[in-house]
């Protein structure tokens, strides 16, 4: 056998490359898990986890919703038991207060429309 017979040819080298291409090393499960854990930890924006969370965020989060609840309760209480110096709006709405008569005789009296022409 000559020396050239013992040397690797281009074709044989390509056979080795093809063997490497056809059998890529499998990625260890632990490595892939770690990569995905890194990705989750480093993700810049966390998506909303549900409709309620999105609704809460649109209202300004916890402080915003707290303010809304407080204002609603105060308004309801004022409506039910108004302070003494405020008009009784609930009574007016329920027609419990007598109406005030307005004297408009001057506006409808004879001669007013004549003077206006």
């Amino acid at each position: 056998m000559t020396r050239s017979d013992k040397n690797t040819t281009d074709t044989e080298l390509e056979t080795l490359f093809a063997a490497a291409r056809s059998a890529p090393p499998p990625v260890p499960d632990a490595l892939m898990s770690q990569i995905l854990a890194d990705a989750q930890r480093m993700q810049p924006i966390q998506p909303a986890t549900g409709g309620f969370v999105s609704w809460l965020r649109a209202l300004g989060g916890g402080p915003g919703v707290g303010g809304l609840v407080f204002a609603t309760c105060v308004g309801f209480w004022i409506g039910v038991a108004p302070p003494a110096n405020l008009p009784d709006l609930a009574g007016q709405l329920l027609n419990l207060q007598s109406s005030t008569d307005i004297d408009d005789s001057d506006l409808t009296g004879f001669g007013w429309d004549i003077e206006e022409g």
């Binding site: 995905l36 810049p44 966390q46």
Partner: peptide
């Protein structure tokens, strides 16, 4: 980058084997 949790898994599955 926009917050899609599935994108990381898909991208990692595509590029990690080649880099490793």
């Amino acid at each position: 980058a926009a917050g899609d949790p599935a994108a990381a898994r898909l991208l990692a599955a595509q590029v990690t084997p080649r880099m490793f």
